[in-house]
């Protein structure tokens, strides 16, 4: 680990000032400390934001939910408002990592966590995300866990967050604060596909902080849930996952929100699947037909072709589970 200075501001303006001068924010630290130890991250200055007032889970006036950036994954997952209104969020969180890591990691940090691509994490390998222009060792290397959607010539790394998949499905908004003030970014615009610049992973401007994520109100009743498919039954990142939220009224699907994880360079909204669902009656045949569009546009690599079919079946299964048909 490279040496760094450490500060712990107690106010947001002080933190922003430290961030503006190049400080790297640390919240839970589960990604940053790990990557600093691998020397993938080499900040000169670490700014501890744990003391900032960015906690709390609150209902918004519009009937949605606001989760503070520094709320731990554990606390967010078990919060009554989250559990009752958005089980898909609780489930995505509790299927992530381990109890220890969930106690440490924050909501903001979870969204910003960096890829698990083995070549990104190994400084002796070529990686455009870590070292722009150095190449991508994963494309022709071992890429079983890599992305099939949203990839580019420069990068095929998967976004690892489960929570972000649920937030993508639910049309969440990311609340930001910087020295120029506050702003909001739609979740779908917040995490960036790699394109030619895989080192740019999100819409944060230098020194900006996430203050909260907001989930808008959705028509009720809303059934939602998260399915995570992985080799090991716990403590592992997803091979594929599906976040599904359905509003079914009068026997007809009125709104459908579906996103997939483990398959994209960013959490992948499955709008083609949603279009198949809306306005139709839930039946097993519908789930299969809609899920058949889950991998539309996917480009598999040498070792992850299996994700095409697996993604479709993951989505089909979770549509059935959430949609309540046998």
């Amino acid at each position: 680990m490279f040496p760094f200075t450490y500060t712990r501001p107690t106010s947001t303006p002080a933190a922003l000032a430290a961030g503006a001068s190049g400080g790297r924010y640390i919240a839970g630290g589960t990604t940053l400390v790990d990557l600093m130890r691998e020397t993938v991250e080499r900040p000169d200055s670490v700014v501890d934001i744990a003391g900032l007032p960015l906690g709390g889970v609150t209902a918004t006036r519009g009937g949605g939910l606001r989760i503070g950036a520094l709320v731990s994954m554990t606390d967010a997952a078990r919060h009554r408002l989250v559990r009752t209104a958005y089980p898909v969020i609780s489930q995505a969180l509790e299927l992530s990592a381990s109890p220890q890591l969930r106690n440490m990691a924050s909501i903001g940090g979870n969204i910003l966590q960096r890829t698990r691509c083995t070549y990104f994490r190994d400084i002796s390998a070529a990686c455009n995300k870590r070292e722009p222009g150095s190449g991508c060792a994963a494309r022709e290397g071992w890429n079983r866990t890599h992305a099939i959607l949203g990839t580019s010539q420069a990068c095929v790394a998967t976004h690892p967050s489960d929570l972000a998949v649920a937030l993508t499905a639910l049309d969440a908004t990311v609340h930001l604060i910087g020295s120029a003030g506050t702003r909001q970014v739609a979740f779908g615009d917040f995490l960036l596909q790699p394109g030619a610049t895989p080192h740019r992973e999100n819409a944060l401007r230098p020194g900006e902080l996430i203050t909260a994520v907001e989930i808008p109100a959705h028509p009720r009743p809303l059934s939602s849930g998260y399915l995570k498919v992985r080799d090991r039954q716990s403590y592992e990142f997803a091979l594929t996952s599906a976040a599904v939220a359905l509003h079914i009224d009068g026997g007809v699907i009125r709104t459908a929100k579906v996103a997939a994880g483990g398959v994209g360079t960013v959490p992948w909204r499955l709008r083609a699947v949603e279009r198949q669902l809306v306005g139709r009656r839930p039946t097993p045949q519908l789930w299969a037909r809609a899920a058949g569009h889950a991998a539309d546009g996917a480009r598999p690599l040498a070792h992850n072709r299996f994700k095409l079919g697996l993604l479709e079946r993951t989505v089909e299964r979770q549509l059935r589970v959430v949609g309540g048909t046998r």
């Binding site: 630290g29 400390v33 220890q100 890591l101």
Partner: peptide, 8 residues
């Protein structure tokens, strides 16, 4: 409970 290895 936390992982001591990732706690500065």
């Amino acid at each position: 409970r936390v992982n001591g290895c990732l706690t500065l």
